[in-house]
């Protein structure tokens, strides 16, 4: 967005999961199963920006988020945070780095240890990184953070099961923010919540962002949420980035047929029924055996021979707007004029 160096740079990140070969597999010569969850994704995030990452389940968006934080060790590729190569850091330096990069999880029930009080959960980052001099100071800082996310300091001695889903998500946010990080991976933080609670949490996250000067990678399958929040949006399909650019461009004039079909599939309250809907045939192919050529060709209405043979290169289609499709120059669109 700005001319300054990006806060986070992801360069050709690959994450593979190996199924492991058993003795029997080795004897029969069966190859090891390899799931390529993320296949060479590059993107950059400027300080103070919200980059939305969108895609359907199994596209690798959560894996990408976790690999950036090295919660899952990337197979290859580089993650640079504020000039430091995170992927090369040894354990002690990585631990120090974790204070600056945090994550908010999807499931407000699974992400909090049921046997810890709220005070212990939120206070843990402070204690681990020695950010407070005394237990009393930990408590003060935790209380301040808990109030910042809209709960009461009187809640500190309660256990997670005594809270509702929305309140628990607030606790998870407090845990992520208490060490004053600069960068947060928000991994579907509102997907498990009811509509009215979802809006509360979105509002809280945007308020905290401007208040604390945060940068978000916001992962979601919900285009409406991404469209509302993000400055730029990245679209993933089967481990690959198919389109990336400013949200106004990508969502208003999507260039990749997959982004177009995603846009047309979202039911919206504003303009029901006035739309020609793109019907994508079939389901997401298995990442165990991704299709050759362009990975989207099995479901793409525009697929031709070259799409079945060759993987498309990423091309620039506008200012800061890139897409990976063989037929970009033809300006095909699945969407009606009215929608564009």
């Amino acid at each position: 967005m700005t001319g300054s160096a990006p806060l986070l740079e992801v360069d050709k990140l690959v994450k593979e999961y190996r199924g492991g070969r058993r003795l029997a597999d080795r004897l029969t010569g069966r190859p090891e199963t390899v799931v390529r969850a993320v296949t060479g994704v590059s993107l950059s995030i400027a300080r103070g920006e919200i980059v939305g990452l969108i895609g359907e389940s199994g596209c690798g968006k959560s894996t990408l988020g976790r690999s950036i934080l090295r919660l899952h060790e990337p197979t290859s590729g580089r993650v640079t945070f504020d000039g430091t190569d995170v992927t090369a850091l040894a354990a002690p330096a990585m631990k120090a780095m974790r204070r600056r990069m945090q994550i908010i999880f999807q499931d407000p029930y699974a992400s909090l240890n049921p046997r810890r009080t709220v005070g212990e959960i939120v206070g843990l980052p402070l204690r681990l990184h020695g950010l407070a001099r005394s237990p009393a100071e930990v408590r003060d800082l935790v209380a301040a953070m808990i109030e910042k996310v809209g709960l009461k300091s009187a809640h500190l001695d309660r256990y997670p099961h005594q809270f509702s889903g929305g309140q628990r998500q607030r606790i998870g946010i407090a845990r992520a923010l208490v060490s004053h990080p600069e960068f947060i991976v928000c991994d579907e933080p509102v997907s498990a919540l009811d509509v009215s609670i979802q809006a509360q949490i979105i509002q809280l996250l945007t308020d905290l962002k401007s208040e604390m000067g945060l940068t978000y990678l916001f992962i979601s399958h919900d285009i409406s949420v991404i469209g509302y929040l993000s400055d730029r949006v990245a679209v993933m399909y089967l481990g690959e980035l198919v389109e990336f650019g400013p949200v106004e461009d990508v969502l208003a004039r999507p260039r990749h047929p997959y982004t177009q079909s995603l846009m047309s599939a979202v039911p919206e309250v504003d303009r029901p029924g006035h739309r020609h809907r793109v019907r994508l045939e079939g389901d997401l192919p298995s990442p165990l055996a991704p299709p050759p050529g362009c990975r989207f060709h099995t479901r793409c209405p525009f697929a031709t021979d070259i799409c079945r043979r060759e993987a498309p290169r990423t091309e620039t289609v506008g200012p800061g707007h890139t897409a990976a499709c063989h037929r970009l120059s033809e300006n095909l669109s699945l969407l009606d004029e009215e929608q564009a």
């Binding site: 976790r66 934080l69 919660l71 990585m94 631990k95 120090a96 974790r98 204070r99 945090q102 994550i103 999880f105 999807q106 499931d107 699974a110 992400s111 909090l112 240890n113 843990l124 980052p125 681990l128 990184h129 998870g172 845990r175 992520a176 060490s179």
Partner: peptide, 17 residues
């Protein structure tokens, strides 16, 4: 695989902890 364990890793907790 539970998220609270992942959360502890993300905070920088040691394996023993």
């Amino acid at each position: 695989e539970l998220e609270y364990v992942e959360a502890a890793r993300a905070i920088g907790a040691s394996r023993g902890y």
